[in-house]
Design a protein around this nucleic acid. Structure first.
Lengths: 118, 118
DNA sequence: GATGTTGCTTCGATTTTCGAAGTTGCTACG
DNA sequence: CGTAGCAACTTCGAAAATCGAAGCAACATC
């Protein structure tokens, strides 16, 4: 049997695994990343504005997420020297392209998850 | 000024926050949850099969995720007494309803993320 | 000068996840 | 009958991720 034949387990992973989804969730599966992206849907925002918009998110993690999302080219960091210095984060085209999927997840959650009462 | 008037910060959160997306990502934002759901798209599977299908996922976390997804009614755990005992996990209607969004995320990742070469 | 805001960084504490080892109950085989 | 292997998990110490408070420089405002 030639070496190119995959084992049963490899075949299973091929059938059930989804490399693209796996890659997507190396980013989205990190706590708060999806919500940071979702928050930018409303337009560019500064650090403090994002911090206020997302309850429970710590500054150090926000900083980390913005760096990682920028590195993944989903977010662009724009600096205006001022004074005072002004930094805004905005979605790139790659980031914008994810918004319909996040909308779909939102709509799904309304329909299929138990939202807690206000 | 009446007590019902929200502060500016509350208004910001209202404009940028998305309670439904936030709720969705309390589940999907936990490492591996989305991939477990995505893996079940191919049909019901047992614990080992899921473990093999998702590279890097530890048994204790898989057990935890399946319990939480079952509790959230996205997954159903079906036991056949046997002998031998046989347990399979399958998507509920709620879980099925998420699949189009996960498909969309997959397609987005292919287009907009840098997949590593094989 | 004091206070507040922006845009972060630092660091010890806490939580989450990992990974190996283990358990029970079965099947298959010599 | 004993051994090996598999399924379906559980346990627990180690490692990684996240939290939360405090801090900093550079500005604006009073």
């Amino acid at each position: 049997m030639s070496a190119s034949v995959r084992s049963h387990a490899d075949k299973e992973e091929c059938d059930r695994g989804d490399a693209a989804l796996t890659l997507a969730f190396t980013i989205l599966g990190q706590r708060w990343s999806a919500l940071v992206l979702g928050s930018l849907r409303a337009g560019p925002a500064g650090f403090r504005e994002l911090s206020r918009a997302i309850d429970g998110l710590s500054d150090s993690v926000l900083s980390d997420r913005l760096a990682k999302l920028t590195q993944a080219r989903l977010v662009r960091r724009r600096v205006e020297e001022g004074p005072p210095v002004s930094v805004t984060y905005e979605l790139t085209d790659h980031g914008e392209a994810l918004m319909p999927a996040l909308d779909q997840i939102s709509a799904w959650a309304v329909e299929h998850l138990d939202l807690p009462p206000d």
